[in-house]
Design a binder for these strands. Structure first.
Length: 633
RNA sequence: GCCUCUGUAGCUCAGUGGUAGAGCACUUCACUUGUAAUGAAGGGGUUGUGGGUUCAAUCCCCACCAGAGGCUCCA
């Protein structure tokens, strides 16, 4: 057998294990969790019987982590079995950050986790080996007699079945695993949650325990520290601290924007409207409630009814009305308000209507997932051959907006799903248009096969969150092609051939839900907003009461200039006032004392703690206005 | 909707089967301060809501409401 390891080529006896091979090659095994050969990762103790390349996996690699966490899931399951012998094992995979295991027939709460951790520690100290065995399907079934979940899994598997023994614990498992429990030095069980067997809400509810583990205590501490950092980016916490929004049981899922929050929200709206103007979108205003008939025509009533709020009967006519969950159909009324020609296209209609969607209570999340939302929504009526260029244009808008917020976009192209309307030809042309637009604009993108809407392909744009990890990116913008809407609402234009044609509709939303977008900005910035978005752009602080009149005089000057400035003339100490301003993340604190008053200047402290003395008010306010105008820090 | 946890003053949180406490915030007074917390006094709570158990419930039990996390990661 020939093994290739980096540039060393050596022959080994068939049946050598990675541990033996490592010794011969002189590979240091400390930190090595598993090996990887051509056919995939394997146990360090498993014999290799094929010609192959070999790689040694440590925790640093994605595959190494997977092995490590999967072994940790076994460790946890072993502990659960000891403490709760009746618990039935189901599945326990590694996930992107840690692992979980689902159990059937146990009840436990967060308080029980400590007990399990102790048990796990005992197993780790016992240094139990992970022993791999192959058995027949029948033998495996016998091992898990009475466990319908394992029986279901085995039903789909082929003999021989691999099992792993760790002390007295046995689980069906493809592996590989770390050689022994001693490797699993540092771990933490995080939470207990409910999950459905195979993610299906009609099936059994299982108890899922989440955990993370690391090869050293230091790494676990680092993880814990990062989790602390995470809470600084919790938009709900920031919203509370900066007095931006409140939630109320009066209307769950519909946050109330407080004055400070409303300022930020309106600044975002202002930006959206500026972009509309710049890029030739016309704003329309359409009803919030309408007869359900509308949604029967659009098809939403059939597909989306569970998420719709009905208002029925609304009037004496006993006709059912509904709150709109989407703006789309209403733009057709605007299009049809007069006879349209191809010269009117592309017709770009922006709609900021308030939408209501019934979201599951458990899915609600601050500004991120709400039941009332407002999108910077647009519907573009267009001919098929205009699609590509129009989308390139949309990317221009998006680039401009993202640059302001320093957001990094990730593009995904979603193609035709199983259930769809429109001809395959039309789909191909539309998908190509989207692909070309992406490529001509120089974007890298991933393709999600079959993930398009039933009415057309789409591009979803995600933006990175504060961690910068693609897997936790936010869905921010969307661009969708729609073959359905115009047909359903009988929308037509006259072509250059003097005949009637049905336009294609593009759905576009650059910022998505504005509330949600605000949440993203809050989280990513940790509450440190640029001047143009800050509810209070500067706060005047007087040192003594003697300076209050000077403070009032300057305040009115700032307000005349349209700046959001406030005055703190309380009789607290300067230190206290500075601290207050700093905690509220106000970009500038203007300090006024006797010296400033005598010289008719101001002292400006910026958020980074640096202070400039003897500044002229005009100079400062001009600088501020410039920053606001250009939307820079 | 389902699972786990949580709900005590505006906020952050203690606490107890015998109707409640701290810090911050707020009000008042004193201090008049030069770049991240001056001191003192005071006001503020049907312990989420509704039932039940009990001589007695904020605490125990049930239901409801709201909040947090989870319900895609496949032997």
């Amino acid at each position: 057998m020939q093994i290739v390891y980096e540039d060393k080529k050596q022959k080994f006896e068939t049946g050598a294990t990675p541990i033996e091979i490592a010794k011969t090659l002189g590979v240091q095994l400390s930190g090595v969790i598993a090996a990887k050969i051509d056919s995939g990762p394997i146990d360090l103790t498993r014999k290799i019987n094929e010609d192959t390349k070999i790689e040694f996996l440590t925790f640093d690699s994605k595959e190494g982590k997977e092995v490590f966490w999967h072994s940790s899931a076994h460790l946890m399951a072993a502990a659960v079995k000891r403490v709760y012998p009746n618990a039935q094992l189901t599945l326990g995979p590694a996930i992107s950050e840690g692992f979980y295991y689902d159990f059937y027939d146990i009840k436990l709460g967060d308080n029980d986790l400590e007990l399990l951790e102790k048990e796990m520690k005992a197993i780790v100290e016992a240094d139990s080996k992970f022993v791999r065995k192959e058995v027949s399907k029948d033998e495996a079934l016998a091992l898990f007699k009475g466990n319908k979940f394992k029986a279901e899994i085995l039903g789909e598997a082929e003999s021989p079945i691999t099992i792993y023994e760790t002390g007295d614990f046995i689980d069906i498992c493809r592996g590989p695993h770390v050689p022994s429990t001693r490797y699993l030095k540092a771990f933490k069980l995080l939470k207990v949650a409910g999950a459905y067997w195979r993610g299906d809400s009609k099936r059994e509810v299982l108890t899922r325990i989440y955990g993370v583990s690391f090869p050293s205590k230091a790494l676990l501490e680092e993880y814990t520290k990062f989790e602390g950092e995470r809470s600084k980016h919790d938009h709900k916490k920031i919203g509370k601290e900066l007095e931006l929004f409140e939630t109320s049981a009066w209307s769950p899922g519909s946050p109330f924007l407080l004055p400070n929050g409303a300022i930020i929200y309106n600044e975002l709206l202002k930006l959206a409207r500026e972009m509309d103007k710049k890029y030739g979108y016309q704003e329309i205003i359409t009803p919030i409630i309408a007869k359900s008939e509308v949604w029967k025509t659009s098809g939403h009533y059939e597909k989306y009814r569970e998420n719709m709020y009905k208002v029925a009967p609304f009037s004496v006519e006993d006709e059912e009305y509904a709150l709109k969950p989407m703006n789309c159909p209403f733009s057709t009324v605007v299009f049809n308000a007069k006879t349209r020609s191809y010269r009117d296209l592309p017709l770009r209609l922006a709609d900021y209507g308030f939408l209501h969607r019934y979201e599951l209570e458990g899915a609600l999340d601050g500004l991120f997932r709400t039941r009332m939302l407002e999108q910077n929504d647009a519907h573009i009526y267009i001919t098929e051959d205009q699609v590509e260029n129009e989308i390139i244009r949309m990317f221009e808008i998006m680039k401009e907006v993202y640059a302001i917020f320093k957001l990094t976009p990730l593009m995904t192209l979603a193609t035709r799903p199983e259930q769809r309307i429109g001809s395959d030809d039309a789909w191909s042309r539309a998908e190509n248009a989207l692909r070309n637009a992406l490529e001509k604009s120089g974007y890298k993108y991933t393709i999600k096969e079959g993930d398009g809407a039933f009415y057309g392909p789409k591009i979803d744009i995600y933006v990175l969150d504060f961690t910068g990890k693609p897997e936790s990116a936010y869905a921010a913008s969307t661009i969708q092609v729609d073959f359905n809407l115009a047909t359903r609402f009988d929308v037509k234009y006259t072509g250059s051939d003097n005949r009637e044609h049905t336009p294609i509709v593009l759905h576009q939303s650059v910022m998505g839900s504005l509330g949600r977008f605000m949440g993203i900005i809050l989280s990513n910035s940790g509450g440190d907003l640029p001047v143009w978005l800050s509810p209070v752009q500067a706060r005047i602080v007087t040192i003594t009461e003697r300076n209050n009149d000077y403070g009032k005089k300057l305040l009115s000057k700032f307000i005349e200039r349209g700046l959001r400035v406030e005055l703190d003339e309380s009789n607290a100490t300067l230190d206290y006032k500075i601290r207050e301003g700093q905690l509220k993340k106000i970009p500038y604190i203007i300090v006024l004392g006797d010296k400033e008053e005598a010289a008719n200047t101001i002292a400006v402290r910026s958020k980074d703690g640096k202070t400039k003395y003897g500044v002229e008010l005009n100079e400062f306010s001009k600088d501020l206005q410039e920053k606001i105008k250009t939307r820079t820090l």
